[in-house]
Amino acid sequence: MLEKQNLLGLTQEQFKKFFSDLDEKPFRTKQIMQWIYHQGASNFDDMHNFSKDLRQKLRAIASLELPEVVSINNSKDGVIKWVIKLGEENHIETVYIPQKDRGTLCISSQVGCALACTFCSTGYQGFNRNLKSYEIIAQVLIAQNHLKESKKRISNVVFMGMGEPLLNESPVYDACELLLDDWAFGLSRRRVTVSSSGIVPALLRMSDKVPVSLAISLHASNDELRDVLVPINQKYPIKELMKACHYYLNAGTQERHVLFEYVMLEGVNDSVEHARSLSKLLNYWFKGESAKVNLIPFNPFPETKYQTSKESTIDKFQDVLFRSGIRTTTRRTRGDDVDAACGQLAGKVLDKSRRNAGRNQLLS
C-alpha cells in the first residue's frame, strides 16, 4: 500500500500539478489552500465545494495530518513552547513569543543541528535529519490552532529554532513561499526571517529565490574567535560571509534588511575592544545600508562553559555601536523558565552525526 501524500506544505505550483495529475482544474488549488489555511480544515469531508468523488479520491491518496504534540509549556512571561514528535524518538521545539504589537513564532528547520556552535544547546544534541516542508508548515498550523482559543495571532515567523535553515534549502524556501502566499498565511516579506550561521553558497542562492528578511548568527568580528564559536566559519570565513550579505541586500528591486545576531558571552566577545572591532567591520561593509545588530544575552544550559555578560557590560558594548552609527537593540530574554529562550532549544534527537566523536568536524 502506497503511503499517503501529506498535502500540508505544498506551494501553489505544487498543488496545481497535484490536481492536474488528478485531471482536476487549476481553481481547485485556491479552494483547498483556503480550506487548509483560512478555514483550518483538517478533513477532506469538510470541503463541501469539492465533489463527493474528489473527496473520496483525496481520502485515498492524501492526508492533512499534523504531527503529535508531546507537551505544551507555558512560561510565566507568556511564551509558549510546543514539543513536537516526529518519529524515531525525534522531537523538535517551536516557540511563540507574544509582544505588545506582535506575536512571533520561532520554528525549527531540522531535527537537531550539525553545525556545533559552542554556545547553543541545539548543537549539543547532534543531528538526525532535515524537516520536510509539511513538517515546517505544521509547526505554524499547530501554533495557529492553539492560539485561536485566546485570540492571539502570529504576525511574524522566524526560522531561528532548531537547525540551520540553509542546510535544508528547498523545504525552507517552500515554507517561506506559503508564509508569504495570500492563499495561505499572507505575511509580508519583512515579517518572515531566515536566520543562518553563514552557509555562503546557499545564502547567495537564497538571495535570488526568497525575498524575506535575513538574520546572520555572527557573534564575533574576527575569524580567530568566530572559528571557535561558530565552527562553520572555518569553511566560510567572515569576508566571504560579508560579501554574501552585501549581495543579498542588493539583490532584487525591493528594499531588503539584514540583522546581525551577537550573543553576549562574558569575557569572550563582550569587551569594548570587541565592540569597536564589530563596528569597524559593519561600517566598512554596510554603512548607509539597512543593517542592524541584535545583542543577545547568553542563555545558559547544563552542558555550557559560558556565562552571560553583565548588564553593564552589554550597555557599554551597545553604546560603542550606537556612537559609531550602527542601529542596535538588546534582545529581552523570554521563556527561559521553560527552556524556550534563544539558544536553549534542544528537543530530543536520535543523533546520526557522530557528534561525540568529533564535535567540531565541519560538513564536507
Rank of each mutant, 00 (worst) to 15 (best):
E3L: 13
Q5E: 04
Q5V: 01
E13C: 15
E13F: 12
K16H: 11
P26R: 07
K30T: 13
K30D: 13
S42M: 14
D45K: 09
M47N: 08
Q56M: 13
A62T: 14
L64N: 06
L66I: 06
V69G: 01
S71G: 06
S75H: 01
S75R: 03
D77A: 00
V79N: 05
W82A: 03
V83L: 09
H91A: 13
Q99N: 09
Q99V: 03
D101V: 14
G103W: 14
T104Q: 00
I107F: 00
G112M: 01
A116I: 10
C120A: 02
F127N: 02
R129N: 09
N130D: 05
N130T: 04
A138I: 04
V140A: 13
V140M: 07
K152M: 11
V157N: 02
L166N: 03
N168P: 02
P171N: 09
D174I: 03
D174R: 05
D174Q: 05
A184L: 09
R190C: 03
R191T: 00
T193E: 10
S195K: 02
G198E: 01
G198H: 06
S207Y: 09
D208N: 15
V212P: 00
N222M: 08
N222L: 10
R226Y: 13
D227K: 01
V228N: 04
P231N: 03
I232E: 08
Q234S: 08
Q234K: 11
K235D: 06
K239H: 11
K239S: 11
C245P: 01
Y247M: 15
E255T: 11
V258W: 00
L259M: 03
V263Q: 05
V268N: 04
E273S: 12
E273R: 07
S277V: 05
L281G: 05
S290A: 14
V293T: 00
V293L: 05
E303F: 11
S309G: 08
K310V: 06
K310F: 06
D315M: 11
V320T: 08
S324W: 11
I326L: 07
R327S: 07
T328W: 04
A341K: 08
A341H: 07
L345C: 09
A346F: 12
V349F: 00
L350M: 14
R354M: 06
R355V: 08
G358K: 06
N360D: 09
N360Y: 12
